[in-house]
Design a binder for these strands. Structure first.
Length: 910
RNA sequence: GCGCGGGUAGCUCAGUUGGUUAGAGCAACUGGUUUACACCCAGUAGGUCGGGGGUUCGAGUCCCUCCUCGCGCACCA
């Protein structure tokens, strides 16, 4: 033992001490190590100015668990960190600061604005990294990348050029999702449909050719009347058949607009007549195209109306204009009705305002390798965990439309396209597309726009390594670490990020090629496994948000429970469903478990012995050849079982079972049973079981620390060192965790064989003890440790087992003496498989209470027996069920009968 | 409208390919300082597994149907 443990575990001191030590020694550095397997995770880059929230805690704890597990398994692990520039979000923040100063980005100009944005990101950036360090995240910080790093920007631009050259990028003029708040185009994914209570207005337009006749129209958006260039009805709608080809009067600005017939009109909706505003609605745009209707854009980029809307509307905000248009309709006597109406309106996620379909020229990406992206998942080359997210992914891929990737923002990677000065920009003959720009820059001007943030983060798994550089180091690292092992993220960004990374990888991580084989897919994909976790909500299921004040600061929680406590706690409650209900009390288990671990180790230290524990072999040598007594055999059996469980959980990505297995084993088995039993063996150094008990404890604690290390890295490191398990100051991660099967072999090789039958006997002993304790509790002598117990063993072999474990039974049940006898009269007893255990009472037995208790038990058993008999008397069960199931049922029935008879006998004897 | 995921103890959730008397943590209750730990120990109570139907020797688990909650996608102006 090298260092004596304090009475209390102090996470604060311990955590920072070891984190520094790890960093200093480069423990997190992931390097190419030929001959070793690599294990790589790219962090989902948080926003550069973001601060740690509970979602990050979950996401990063999970990643750290996978990474650290891979390290203890001896893989060359790399957890690659970085941040995202979050174009629109960051620009918003900077613009808000500017507004507070009474200025704007337009006043400042692009260059000055970008300086401010860089200042902002330098100032706020990196905060989250320090917070992640406090959590214990073992990222290779040397490598940290930012999506606005010069090199990364070049990668992004290179991808644009590459996509362009391969024919995936084009420029198009069409209706886009326009955010009037941010004044930029958005992709479809950035539009969130929100239910809105509005009004459906019914109004009438007069027929030009038949004055006095009106056509009734329903609309939710009267403010776009000024942009109407037609009215549409369904071609089969008899009500209006005679009007098709005629015209009606648009009320303001007053103009003749045609009535057209178009199949996209629903006859059943409203009056069956649709006003057509091609510049402000997608459906209308399509109708307009088919019928050659003119486009009148009546809105400015900021959502106010322009001069084309007429003098009265010019400059008016769009929702004001809606009211005003209604008022005007009313004045003109054209408004028939306005009824309440619920519909869904697209909102800009970031801007928080309704989007405006707006005609503009933008850059589009036709998604590459869509078929391969689907096939990768369908064929299991990429696997989602849990699997059901596959469907979400495939459904999206089956319905995708081209991606609008240009943004009318300044903070981001500028689009690498230059236009010949003074020439027609819509003619591609006047374009120059390259990373470095034209050789005669004075004759060109660069596209003003930047790329969608996700059009840069989709390169994250390879641009971070330096793609497309030809540098041999870059190639070697990509060769070694790519495809990365897995991705850990929330389901909310499957479309935004996960799917797009897959398609980009498939297209760019190899030569241009139509159609990929499965082998090529396997080489090009960015990751093999995708672990999708839920989103953290508060205890009532509400989203965590600053305004609700229900979002705890993880640093406060770390202060309260320790980083390890928080990590254990969050994983323990996490992977339940798609929502994780967070309540601080639920984290307590993590802190409590840390304390338990600490005290178990303290106890081991107090038990003494300067035994050799620096290596697994040394500990096993201490056991070599010794015949393990029952509990030792049992706890090692359980250790191997637990190790196998955990191996399976990692293999199947069942993280929700991890903490349960470990908690159950270490607390429920080791502390509650083995340590308590071992106390009997540790009383005297002369006890032949003494040294073995210490060795078994060391073996169990050592492995528990190894198994727990990925979840609770700091405390396990502290204990590892303090317990003297470390060789030459090496860390837990250097020790190497053997698979259960190899550990078993190693034990076998030293003639330490773990025996399942022996373990089962201890389970029976535990049952007997539990029964004895329950009886004592029933008679309010639970805390008395000097009672006498009588046991009537079921048979001779049971008697032998009990005899062999007498001293531990005494200790664990709290009895001064235990006598094995033939029969007992007039004492309360409880039945167990090994025998019936009776409590010797000096006072009289409460016969009535005892009768009640036994009758209840009897009833339960009788029911079980009826069920069992029914089953076994049923010929079809005996014939059809597998023999081992029938055999099991038979055995079960016998045992239950014996137990019932014993209870009945007890009852009678009272 | 289409799709996905839930509904199991007071709460939060486990429950592998159908197979003993359905489990855990927390909360509750009772009693407790024993060679570490009250952030602890021992014990008790609490469930007709959302309803109905079906398949089967056997269903929390598979199928159908309904109710209910949550989420995603689409969307009629």
């Amino acid at each position: 033992m090298s260092a004596e443990l304090n009475q209390n575990y102090d996470p604060k001191e311990v955590e920072s001490k070891w984190y520094k030590a790890w960093e200093k020694k480069g423990s997190f550095e992931g390097n190419v190590q030929n001959g070793k397997d690599s294990f790589t995770i790219m962090i989902p880059p948080p926003n550069v100015t973001g601060i740690l929230h509970m979602g990050h805690v979950l996401d990063n704890t999970l990643q750290d668990i996978f990474i650290r597990r891979a390290r203890v398994e001896g893989k060359s692990s790399l957890w690659f960190p970085g941040t995202d520039h979050a174009s629109i979000a960051t620009q918003h923040k900077v613009e808000k600061a500017l507004r507070d100063e009474g200025t704007s980005r337009y006043e400042l100009g692009r260059e000055k604005f970008l300086e401010r944005a860089w200042e902002w990101s330098d100032e706020h950036g990196g905060i989250i990294f320090n917070q992640l360090r406090k959590l214990g995240a073992s990222c290779d910080w040397r490598r940290s990348r930012f999506t606005m790093d010069a090199a990364y920007q070049r990668s992004v631009q290179a991808s644009f050029v590459e996509f362009y050259n391969r024919g995936y990028i084009y420029r198009g003029k069409r209706l886009v999702n326009w955010c009037p708040a941010s004044q930029t185009a958005l992709s479809n994914e950035e539009v969130e449909m929100r239910p809105q209570r509005g009004k459906l207005y019914k109004m009438r337009y007069e027929i030009v050719e038949e004055p006095g006749r009106f056509i009734e129209i329903s609309t939710t958006r009267p403010e776009t009347i000024m942009g109407d260039t037609g009215v549409a009805v369904h071609p089969d709608d008899e009500r209006y058949a005679d009007l098709v080809g005629k015209h009606c009067w648009r009320p303001f600005p007053r103009a003749e607009i045609p009535v057209v017939a178009d199949r996209s009109v629903e006859k059943e909706f409203g009056t069956g007549v649709l006003k057509v505003t091609p510049a402000h609605d997608q459906v209308d745009f399509d109708i307009g195209k088919r019928h050659d209707l003119p486009l009148i854009d009546v809105m400015n980029p900021d959502g106010t109306l322009n001069e084309l809307a007429g003098e009265e509307f010019d400059g008016m905000e769009r929702f004001k204009a809606r009211k005003f248009a209604v008022q005007k309709l009313e004045e003109l006597g054209l408004l028939i009705d306005a009824e309440d109406y619920d519909n869904n309106v697209g909102f800009s996620e970031r801007g928080g305002v309704p989007i405006e379909p707006r005609l503009s020229e933008q850059w589009y990406l036709k998604y590459p390798k869509v078929e391969e992206a689907k096939r990768a998942v369908e064929k299991g080359i990429i696997r989602f965990h849990p699997k059901r997210w596959e469907k979400v992914y495939l459904h999206w891929l089956n319905n995708i439309q081209d991606w609008c990737i240009s943004r009318q923002l300044w903070w981001g990677q500028r689009i690498p396209v230059w236009y010949k000065k003074g020439a027609d920009r819509s003619d591609s003959a006047n374009w120059h597309v390259s990373v470095n720009g034209p050789s005669d820059p004075e004759n060109w001007e660069q596209d003003e726009d930047v790329l969608d943030t996700w059009a840069s983060s989709n390169l994250w798994p390879f641009a971070t390594f330096g793609w497309p550089s030809e540098d041999p180091k870059v190639k070697a690292e990509l060769d070694y670490f790519y495809p990365t092992s897995m991705l850990v993220t929330g389901f909310d960004i499957i479309f935004f990020w996960v799917a797009r990374m897959i398609m980009s990888g498939l297209e760019l991580m190899g030569e241009p090629k139509e159609g990929l084989t499965d082998e090529e897919i396997a080489q090009r994909i960015p990751f093999k496994d995708i672990f999708i976790h839920g989103l953290i909500r508060d205890a009532k299921g509400r989203k965590m948000s600053k305004s609700l004040g229900n979002s705890p600061d993880p640093l406060d929680l770390i202060a309260k429970f320790g980083a390890d406590g928080l990590r254990f706690g969050i994983i323990n409650i996490a992977p339940s469903g798609s929502d994780i209900l967070f309540a601080e009390e639920r984290i307590e288990i993590g802190r409590n478990f840390c304390t338990k671990l600490w005290n178990a180790c303290r106890f081991r230290q107090m038990a003494g012995g300067t035994a050799e524990a620096q290596s697994l072999e040394a500990i096993i040598d201490r056991l070599a050849g010794s015949q393990l007594e029952g509990y030792g055999n049992w706890i090692l059996f359980r250790l191997l079982q637990t190790m196998e469980e955990i191996e399976g959980q990692f293999a199947r990505f069942e993280m929700h079972q991890l903490t349960h297995s470990l908690h159950n084993f270490f607390w429920g088995d080791f502390c509650d049973w083995y340590v308590e039993a071992a106390k009997a063996m540790l009383q005297s150094k002369d006890d032949p079981r003494h040294d073995a008990a210490l060795a078994v404890s060391d073996l169990v604690i050592r492995h528990s620390l190894l198994l727990l290390h990925p979840i609770m890295p700091h405390i396990t490191e502290e204990l590892w060192q303090a317990m003297g398990y470390s060789v030459d100051g090496e860390f837990v991660q250097d020790a190497g965790l053997l698979p259960a099967a190899q550990l078993r072999e190693l034990l076998n090789a030293k003639s330490v064989s773990i025996d399942a039958e022996g373990a089962r006997q201890i389970e029976l002993i535990k049952e007997l003890i539990t029964q004895a304790r329950a009886t004592k509790a029933e008679y309010n002598v639970a805390s008395k440790r000097d009672v006498t117990l009588f046991v009537t063993p079921t048979d001779d072999s049971c008697a032998t087992v009990i005899e062999a474990n007498l001293d531990t039974i005494k200790r664990l049940a709290g009895a001064a003496t235990i006598e094995l006898v033939e029969t007992v009269e007039n004492l309360p007893g409880s039945v167990s498989a090994l025998g019936t255990v009776y409590l010797d009472l000096s006072s009289a037995v409460d016969v009535e209470a005892e009768k009640e208790r036994l009758s209840k038990e009897l009833e339960k058993l009788t029911k079980a027996i009826q069920a069992g008999e029914g089953k076994l008397n049923n010929p079809s069960f005996v014939d059809k069920a597998p023999p081992q199931v029938v055999e099991g049922a038979r055995k079960q029935l016998l045992e239950t009968r014996a137990r019932r008879d014993e209870i009945a006998r007890l009852l009678k004897s009272l």
